[in-house]
Nucleic acid binder design. Sequence first.
DNA 1: TAATTTTATTAGGCATGCCTAATTTTAATT
DNA 2: AATTAAAATTAGGCATGCCTAATAAAATTA
Lengths: 217, 217
Amino acid sequence: MHSLSEENYLKAIYSQTKEGVSKITPTSIAEELRNNPASVIDMLKKLSDKKLLSYDKVKGAKLTEKGNKIAVEIVRKHRLWEVFLLEKLGYSWGEVHDIAEQLEHIRHEDLADRLDKFLGYPTYDPHGDPIPDKNGKLPATKWLPLSEIAIGKKVKVVNVDDNSPDFLKYLDRQEIGLNSIITIREIQNFDKSLLVELKGKKEVYLSPEASKKIFVE
Amino acid sequence: MHSLSEENYLKAIYSQTKEGVSKITPTSIAEELRNNPASVIDMLKKLSDKKLLSYDKVKGAKLTEKGNKIAVEIVRKHRLWEVFLLEKLGYSWGEVHDIAEQLEHIRHEDLADRLDKFLGYPTYDPHGDPIPDKNGKLPATKWLPLSEIAIGKKVKVVNVDDNSPDFLKYLDRQEIGLNSIITIREIQNFDKSLLVELKGKKEVYLSPEASKKIFVE
DNA sequence: TAATTTTATTAGGCATGCCTAATTTTAATT
DNA sequence: AATTAAAATTAGGCATGCCTAATAAAATTA
């Protein structure tokens, strides 16, 4: 069996894999878990011994099939519990995450499946994230224009609906491209432009017109 | 904040208090938690420092008001989750305990209250145990004849509906009296007599007639 | 009461998972 | 290429919560 802490590492690495982070390093994991790179290295060794991931300095960390399976199960539980908290207990969008963070670690053979059934087999959680099914398969991802994404949600740019040189240059200057990871920080009241954060780096404003042309998932 | 382990100690001491155990000792706690008396003593020191209980060799362990409050909250959560698992997820009587044992430690300000509301403010859990309300008050306890108690449930003798010398002598020989703690182990098919365990000590058979006259809670 | 058995307690250890402070490696700048 | 900055790694420590073995205290039994 794996500990709560181990599960959190697997989940962090899984989520960075999904985000398309090119190299998952001790530092990037430590940032996500808000702990120390030295601690991360200890744990990478341990998880590597357990064959749940591979790690080397050059390639970074990568989940094995076994490790991926565990991570997907946790994500599945997390998102199902979020649906439960929101739909059944009436929690708000913002409150569910922290509680689900605890609930995702509850272990019991068919708990996730029963919860899934009880909730009517939802395919997306309240944040719009896809819920893996009992075999770990994710539903087809929805593409949405950035203009329809909620504040605080982290998304990845998957398409752009305007190939004019002007627009592409605009994106380029803002350092936005395919696979950019974006988090919406604020929506300006006066003109509906978005303040977005680019994967921890800088923050830029996007006009409402631009945000309708940028598709994310 | 208190750790998961601390919560389990408080709960164990609380449950022994309810059972009317006269003196709650390191050994009795270690038995309940399936660990070692030496470990218990470490923890009793810690919880005592935190003013969650008092402990001395002569009087044993006793929860302070503060400690009791925490224990009651955990019991409340445990029993509410049991109701949820049984009624909403369709688990059976026997399966719910282990899962609730994990769920009871989920922390969030008003989670218990929301769950309580969602479940329609139940007053008893699937085992027939009373669920403390949001102020920690227990509903009036139900008295039931021993014959109606499920296998595996631990109950306390609170009344006997026959004061004839014969019957009392019968009870005496079996070492059953007021406040005896009884767990039903088996029900014999051929004559419906009960095999009951007396607080970890011996096991005796009770006739179906006797079990109807012994009231427990 | 003395001997025996059962508890309580202390001491020393261990695994887990985190930390800080070096040190080494790698990457970025000049 | 040389310097500087950033990241990775190692070493040593610490708190938590458990353990076993040894000892002290208490309760039983002879």
